[in-house]
Simulated assay, not measured.
Amino acid sequence: MSLVSSSSKQPDVSVTRVKHTHRPGRHCGSSAIRDLLEFHGLNLTEAFCFGLGAGLGITYVELPGTGTPFIVHVRSMGFEEKVFATLDVPFQWETFPDKSAATAALDEYLNAGKPALLLSDIYYLPYFNSTTHFPGHAIVAWGYSDEGGDVMVSDTERPQLLPVPRESLADARYSLAPPFVHHGNLFVLDKAQLEVRPERVRSAIVDNARALKDGGRLSGIDALDTWINDLPRWQAHEQWSWLLRFAYQVIEKRGSGGGGFRIMYAEFLDEAQALLPELGEMGLASRMRDCALAWSALAGRLEAGSKASCFPIADITQSLQAVRAAELRYVELALKL
Rank of each mutant, 00 (worst) to 15 (best):
S5P: 03
S5N: 12
S5C: 15
S5K: 13
S6G: 12
R17V: 13
K19R: 08
T21V: 07
G29T: 13
S30K: 06
S31M: 08
S31G: 09
A32P: 04
E38I: 06
F39Y: 11
G41I: 09
L42M: 09
L44N: 03
L44S: 05
F48P: 04
G51Q: 03
G57H: 02
G57F: 01
T66Y: 02
G67E: 11
T68F: 07
H73R: 09
R75A: 05
R75G: 06
M77T: 10
G78F: 03
A85K: 13
A85L: 12
T86A: 15
D88K: 12
V89P: 01
V89Y: 01
T95Y: 00
P97F: 03
S100M: 05
S100Y: 02
A104E: 04
A105G: 04
A105C: 07
L106C: 02
D107E: 04
P115K: 12
A116I: 09
S120C: 15
S120P: 03
Y123F: 15
Y123P: 10
Y127F: 15
S130N: 13
T131W: 09
F134I: 14
P135H: 14
G136D: 08
I139A: 09
I139K: 15
G143F: 02
S145K: 08
V153W: 02
D155A: 12
R158Q: 08
P159I: 12
Q160M: 07
L161C: 07
L162K: 05
V164S: 00
R166S: 06
L169H: 04
A170Q: 05
D171W: 09
R173L: 15
R173A: 15
A177F: 07
P179E: 10
H183R: 14
N185M: 12
N185P: 05
V188R: 03
A192T: 14
A192M: 08
E195I: 14
P198S: 12
N208P: 03
G215H: 01
G216D: 03
L218V: 13
D222P: 01
I228H: 04
N229C: 14
D230L: 07
R233E: 03
W234D: 07
Q235W: 01
A236W: 00
Q239E: 07
S241K: 15
S241N: 08
W242A: 11
L243C: 10
L243W: 05
F246N: 13
F246W: 12
V250A: 06
E252G: 08
G255D: 10
F261Q: 03
R262M: 11
F268H: 08
F268L: 05
Q273E: 07
L279W: 02
L279I: 15
E281D: 09
G283F: 02
R287L: 14
R289P: 01
A297P: 00
L298F: 00
S306L: 11
A308Q: 09
S309T: 12
C310I: 06
F311L: 12
I313L: 11
S319Y: 00
S319T: 14
L320Q: 05
L320N: 05
R324V: 13
E327P: 01
V331T: 07
E332R: 13
